[in-house]
Amino acid sequence: MATQHSRSAARLMMAPAVVLLLGWMLVPLTMTLFFSFKKYLPLRGDSLERGLDWVGFANYVRFIGSSSFWPSVQATLIIVGGVLVITVVLGVLLAILLDQPFWGQGIVRILVIAPFFVMPTVSALVWKNMFMDPVNGILAHLWRFFGAEPVSWLSDASVQSIIMIVSWQWLPFATLILLTAVQSLDSEQLEAAEMDGASPLMRFWHIILPHLSRAITIVILIQTIFLLSIFAEIFVTTGGSFGTRTLTYLIFQRVVDSQNIGLGSAGGVYAIILANIVAIFLMRIVGKNLDR
């Protein structure tokens, strides 16, 4: 398939995509790197035209040394980890349940997948107001019905609430992928195990779960990429208060609210490094699948 002629045609046809993405990556990245070594506070009169002061690694040191840095890393990890655990565990169980024969499979599948299509701002708003509002929210009604004191979800259990909202959004994705993987399991394998006297629990542990391991890895890695940069959910609900300020949100505040571009850029570089560490793992896995 590869003649000189087709190879040069291929290079030509790939060029637009490669050039666009290269520009999209390199230009802002270079600028972020540049700003991260500068003192740049537009509100205090710094401007590009007059030139910016070189401050070396001061922004990096300050960003990491600020009292908000470690809590934000912690919040990021707790939220990402919490969502991953919930979506994967429930996703596996749900996938196995939905794989069983039952009436109305098509409709239930549509119901389960629906949250994935809801835009993040909408789901955050709906959850915040109509469900988690301590006075009029559904959960408050429910709590009162059972004689309990309604909870101020987004201030008293803010991190848990965020995890809950984001999990609701991502559970469909996990379920859908895992369901596809479950369906590809050869039923003869399960029957053979049954003939060999394996109990349902053993079959789950020794056959279904190993079969799903690849799909689970993919769910974890793809979700991690998206979860590391969740924004709208926090923007709309807590605005980063009550311990829900993730790394992404902290940087956003530095850049947009306090207009400290240098500091925010240094934070951006940290976030890029963090994302790349995750990315390397994802690349390995996806890359392996490419070879098959």
Binding site: M31, T248, I251, V255, G264, G268, A271
Partner: peptide, 9 residues
């Protein structure tokens, strides 16, 4: 995977 916030400004 480039975090959007890193290149927002």
């Amino acid at each position: 995977m480039l975090p959007a916030v890193g290149v927002l400004y």
